[in-house]
Structures are given as structure tokens and as C-alpha cells.
Design a protein around this nucleic acid. Structure first.
Lengths: 201, 201
DNA sequence: CTCCATTCGGAACAGGTGTTACGGTAACAG
DNA sequence: CTGTTACCGTAACACCTGTTCCGAATGGAG
């Protein structure tokens, strides 16, 4: 049965085409024809894979989440300590190279599209809450003596900082070079007493 | 000469209509007709006030910046100490009520639109750099003994945190209530030793 | 009042949009 | 080989987009 494999492979290719258009031309030019051109096919194929444009966007959004989730879990698994894991997970969310910069633009494009799309906003909220819980869990593991309230506040600060700087750097890479982002992250981890090397008790 | 006053008043009314559509219907439905409907006029008036849609969006973007700048400068002027000013300026940037929540959505919408619009992205970068310089100046005043590098890193952390949480809360108000945002901000200010009441030397 | 300039509503236009339906074609079963 | 089936490119469809343009109001000047 190579048919289902082909179908899912095509779905992934089309989702990547959605990301490509979203990153390169913006939400306003994210048309079915632009996606088809980016994927090297025609609108016919697109509309045979997905019932409509909304479903195409939703699938691309879900696949983006799934890929970042896999990447983050790999980083978490190979980290020696919770603090290393926390830093690695936050680090990968910033816009440090062209790849992550485009991801930030795409993430923002989906968020802007979600304003008028119930399914997309629901997907965003589900993913975002899972993301928050992950960072809260890592923060709690990195500072076991903290209260739940402090864990929540600090985790929220770290999350919004990483996502915020990713969006900032995506929109103005020259003004927010990777070194600035990293020194910001490390300054925050030190300030919150979450840097590797701090006492943990 | 009530004509120029009328013109600028109409320009402002149309810009507010742009914000309204952007906040309520999203970037994809931000059409000239939708703006005209929101402003209670026809497309004819819109196209007589602005040469094209791009100029309309740019004016709305500039007006948004001008209003937030005025609000921030008023907060800064009435603050007793640099630390109070810093907190107030960061505080107003979060999404704590319906007004600021919509502003965050509009800000994000403009940013998403700027991906394919050279003038909008230039405007965003100019405004963003001015914003960064303002917070760096406030941070330096709040912690005079710091090095420029530390001021820059901490200011960037505070900026991205406030803007990031605004976007998060705008997209999911139930998950990020004002209390969470404020405790996050205060936790960060305490951690960076910028809270009112800390020693300043 | 007339005359004129300005303003703006509304229709019209060309082009682009999402979506549908029709044919051809390639692969596979017999 | 033939017949069938799934697949997908192509061309249409109706609608919506930004923009242009014409004519009708409006209001002040002489």
C-alpha cells in the first residue's frame, strides 16, 4: 500500500509549501494557487488532497506543531539535567538562523490567520497550553523547591520572552542578532536562578 | 479651514476602522470594503482619502504607533521614579483588558501584513527600535550602575516578555488572565533587581 | 439666484480568489 | 491484451478584490 504513504507524503509536501508561502510572501498571498506553485503542482492536486483551503491550513498548522514537538522532545531526552533541558528547549524557540527565523514568521502568520478561523485558534490554544505545561514541568524540575505560583510565573516569563524575541528577530534580523538573543536568555536564566551552575537547593 | 481638519479626522476614523476590522475579522478580511463598512462610508471615500490600500494601512499603522507613544510618554512623565516608569511602560504593553487585547491583535496583524509590504516592515522596524531604545533608557536609569551590555540584555528580556505575553493573552485570554501577566512581570522585575524597593546601588 | 469647486456615493472594470466538474492518463487486475 | 479504477491537470464557474470613473449632491462666492 504505497498509496497512503504517498498521500501523507503529498500532504506533508503541501504543508511545507504552505509554510514556504507564508514565510516568503505573507498571509495575504497565501492562496491555493501560490501553494500549488510552491509545491510544483496544480490547484487540482491541492483540492484533491484537502476538501478546502481551511483544511489545508489546519493540516499545515498541525504538522508544524508536531515537528517542533518532536524536536523539543529530542532535545529534552538528550539533556543531562533539567536545567540544560530547559535552556535547550527555550533556545530552539528563538530565531537564531534562517530556519528558525522562518518558523517564527510562519508561526505568527498562522496566529494572524487564526483570528478569523475557529479551528486554527483552537489548535493554537491547545498547542500553546501544551507548550506552557512543558516549560512549567521543566522549570519545576530545574527548581524543585519553588512554589507552584513561582514556577508558573517564571515559566510564563521564559516562554513569552523566547517567543517574543523570536518574532522580533524574525521581523528585524539585523537589530536582533543571535548573540543578543542568547545573552538575553542567559541573563534571564541567571536572574531567575535557573542557570546551570547555580545551586539548586 | 475646516477642510484639513475634516480630512485628518476622516483619516483617523478610517484608521480606526482598519484597527476594528483587523482586530475583529483578521488580516484576511481586511478589505477596502470591510474598512468602509466599519467606518460607515463607501469605498469611494476611502479611495479619495488614500491613494491605495497600502497607504491606508500604512497610515493606520503610523497612527497606532503615535497613540501608544503618546500614552507611554504620559506614563513616563507622571512616574515618580525610573523604576515606576519602567514598570508602567511595560505594564501598558500587556493585554490586560479588552482595549489592550485588541491592540495586541492589531499589532500582530500589522506585523503579519508587513511580511509582504516593504513600507510596513520599515515602519515596524523604526518603531520597534525606538521602543527598544526607550526601554533601554528607562532600564539604565533604573539601574545606573549596570554595564551597557547588561542594560541591553535585560531591556530586551523585558520588552520581548511584555510583547510576547500580550500576543499570548490576546490569542487565549482565558489561559492568560491579567493576574498571571502581572505576577509574571513582577517576578521578572524582582529577578532582575529592578523592582521598586530593591536597593539601587 | 447662478456658477464653480469640492466631495463623495455607487457603478463598472480587470484581475484574482476558492471551488467544482470534466477528461485524459497511468497503473493495476484479469 | 482489455477493462476498471484512482488520480490529477485543465478549464471553467461565481464571487470577491483593488481601483477607476462618472455624475450627483453640497456649500460657499459673486
Amino acid at each position: 500500500m504505497s498509496r497512503t504513504a504517498d498521500r501523507s507524503a503529498q500532504g506533508e509536501a503541501l504543508s511545507r509549501a504552505v509554510w514556504s508561502v507564508l514565510a516568503g510572501q505573507g498571509l495575504e498571498r497565501l492562496t491555493v494557487r501560490a501553494v500549488a506553485t510552491a509545491a510544483g503542482c496544480t490547484t487540482g492536486l491541492v483540492m484533491h488532497r484537502f476538501p478546502n483551503r481551511q483544511a489545508l491550513l489546519l493540516h499545515a498548522r498541525q504538522l508544524l506543531h508536531e515537528m517542533t514537538r518532536a524536536r523539543v522532545e529530542a532535545l529534552e531526552a538528550e539533556a543531562a539535567t533539567p536545567r540544560v533541558a530547559l535552556r535547550a528547549v527555550l533556545h530552539q524557540g528563538m530565531a537564531l538562523d534562517e530556519q528558525t527565523r522562518q518558523e517564527a514568521i510562519v508561526w505568527m502568520g498562522f496566529l494572524a490567520a487564526a483570528v478569523a478561523d475557529d479551528q486554527l485558534i483552537e489548535e493554537h490554544r491547545r498547542n500553546n497550553r501544551a507548550w506552557r505545561e512543558r516549560v512549567e514541568r521543566l522549570t519545576a524540575a530545574a527548581a524543585p523547591e519553588w512554589t507552584a505560583a513561582r514556577v508558573s510565573a517564571v515559566a510564563l516569563a521564559l516562554i513569552t520572552m523566547a517567543e517574543g524575541v523570536a518574532v522580533y528577530a524574525a521581523a528585524d534580523p539585523a537589530a536582533f542578532p543571535p548573540a543578543d538573543q542568547e545573552s538575553m536568555l542567559d541573563a534571564a536564566l541567571v536572574a531567575f536562578e535557573l542557570a546551570d551552575g547555580d545551586g539548586e537547593g
